[in-house]
Design a protein around this nucleic acid. Structure first.
Lengths: 237, 237
DNA sequence: ACGATAAATATGTTTATACATAAAAGCGCA
DNA sequence: TGCGCTTTTATGTATAAACATATTTATCGT
């Protein structure tokens, strides 16, 4: 390996991946080019084919390489630019910034999902759901307003939980593993209720996050989160 | 989640991963529980330890399991909820919806980055950059307004490109592999310029995407993308 | 009890080998 | 030329074996 190791104990497969990445950045291998096959690279790097395979799979998962059986491995022409971000537990996010966390429920009722929610979640219109509206505060300032629909039948024990006392976000994270999830970002102008609960002027631009999760029993929860003005969500590739 | 249907040609490692996932969803193994070690699971599933290892690594990458040497594998108490999305090439995104794509440059000049951009990108204040403002249209309607700063020295050949003719987004995707990237979402009210170029009322809530890429030569480009009102960005876990 | 040290152990990684499989390349025949 | 078949080949996957490494657990000396 002709390579500066980030650490003395970096796995070989990662070193190989870094070397390949460098060659692509240096334009030794250019977009669309076919790179040497695994057997050749194994000789080049003094490694087993399995190790090279692991390294190349890594880069393919990142979108930097495209691999096809028999056809070989190519540098992606149009690298699918993937970014991942982790959905934080709100309380941790707030406390991490050194602020005091608080949570207040503004509404908790049983009812049926409005059409928009029913469509998004796929629940029947006559399925009784829990409707929860709550605000998360950092140092007394509104941080997020969440408008959530919950399906008490999806998770055993949920019916017994009092979401006035217990933070829904955290209870779900701990107790409701999901099979499928959906997430979307958008922007909306604050309506009257948003404005009131976030203590801002109506019409302010808000970052809106919609998140829905399902398990084998169907819908678990669907939530609309309105972030306080100026909030930024970061992602890393 | 790269889920394939369980079938005859599904790799064994994925079948094992699915089985483990199912056991977690069925609460056979609950949040925080330690699950059997690789050797045991190998016997259970009739596979080699390496295969079980691959399956468990997959689930750990997803955030469903937590693994530590010697300490064993546990079901994550607080599964880091990761979501990934791919940054699309705008033209493809528009054409995929069956709309006619158009691109128009509203400004192209040389200059120095304003403070906000310099701070975000880490370029020196006296580094000459290219400033490009352009709008992407779908069927004649503004789709995105991009306000972009480019570093002509980062990529050989960039100086010769006429970004009045060539779509910057696409040229970069094809010619400028990056080493590091940063991305952020936020919401802003449309200012006068946004409003004019997107042909909307000032003050409308806009979804804003900031994206910066670097390679070993430093900054490649930093762009602020203002999406047309109502635009939704979807992510999948 | 306590702290240092040694043993045990679960995961992490690499290797060699084998076979599976998709797709390109070659070939024969109309 | 074009179609269908066979061969070749690069990647995909699984396996057993071995060693590395981080921790926990056990042990011993004080």
């Amino acid at each position: 390996m002709t390579e500066r190791a980030p650490g003395p104990t970096t796995p070989k497969a990662q070193l190989i991946a870094e070397d390949v990445r460098r060659r692509i950045l240096d334009r030794e291998w250019r977009q669309g080019d076919r790179i040497p096959d695994e057997a050749e690279l194994a000789v080049t790097f003094g490694a087993a084919r399995a190790t090279v395979n692991k390294a190349l799979q890594l880069l393919a998962d990142e979108g930097l390489l495209e691999r096809r059986r028999r056809a070989g491995t190519r540098v992606a022409v149009d690298p699918a630019r993937k970014a991942t971000f982790t959905i934080p537990v709100v309380r941790e996010q707030i406390e991490q910034q050194g602020m005091a966390y608080a949570y207040r429920v503004f509404g908790l009722s049983q009812g049926f999902a409005p059409e928009a929610v029913a469509e998004r979640t796929g629940v029947a219109a006559d399925m009784p759901l829990l409707h929860l509206q709550a605000v998360h505060y950092g140092d007394g300032t509104p941080f997020q307003f969440e408008d959530r629909w919950l399906n008490p039948r999806a998770v055993p024990g949920m019916e017994a939980v009092d979401f006035r006392q217990v933070n829904a976000n955290e209870w779900l994270v701990r107790n409701a593993p999901y099979l499928r999830a959906d997430m979307a970002f958008s922007a909306e102008s604050a309506d009257v209720r948003d404005a009131q609960l976030l203590e801002i002027a109506a019409g302010t631009a808000l970052l809106i996050l919609h998140r829905t999760t399902w398990n084998d029993a169907g819908l678990i929860t669907s939530v609309r989160i309105a972030c306080r003005p100026g909030h930024v969500i970061r992602a890393t590739p």
